[in-house]
Design a protein around this nucleic acid. Structure first.
Length: 139
DNA sequence: GCCAACGTTGGC
DNA sequence: GCCAACGTTGGC
């Protein structure tokens, strides 16, 4: 089982939208970046991810589960782009802000800090546990 | 709102 | 295959 981070602008697609989709989940479509796509190709059903709000909020706000493997992105006819479906699992008790992540030495290598523009990122098991602890949330 | 970082595109 | 131009993202 692996861990990931999904970044979204809440004004476009936010945690509340994700929760509203329930257990059926929703395509994480619209990714037009090869690195991000390749990570989605590596995902397996049952993998967990952080749901991160970019821009104004800049915080991890929830945990999602990958519920399909990578498939064609229905938002384009371009066969290059694929995506997985994810569903909301639980919200963070306390959102973990980018500021808090940057303030934690053990998280200084997180992709969130190092490559801030990448919208789908891998998270290590150690990072996963630390961020969950910061958010008072069950891993 | 600005700007740095970075990915993509297209001309050569 | 290189690189300049351009567009986009996201933190500040």
């Amino acid at each position: 089982m692996r861990y990931w981070l999904f970044k979204s602008e809440p004004s476009v697609w936010g945690w509340d939208d994700q929760v509203a989709k329930g257990n059926a989940g929703e395509e994480w479509d619209g990714v037009r970046n090869y690195q991000a796509r390749n990570f989605m190709r590596e995902m397996a059903v049952g993998d967990l991810g952080f749901f991160y709000h970019s821009q104004k909020e800049k915080a991890v706000v929830g945990i999602v589960e990958v519920c399909t493997s990578a498939h064609a992105d229905s938002s384009t006819d371009d066969q290059r782009w694929e995506c997985v479906d994810i569903r909301a699992v639980r919200p963070f008790v306390l959102p973990v802000t980018l500021e808090a992540v940057k303030a934690e030495d053990r998280l200084s290598d997180m992709a969130l800090v190092r490559s801030s523009r990448l919208s789908v990122q891998p998270v290590t098991e150690a990072e996963w546990k630390i961020v969950c602890a910061l958010g008072k949330t069950e891993p």
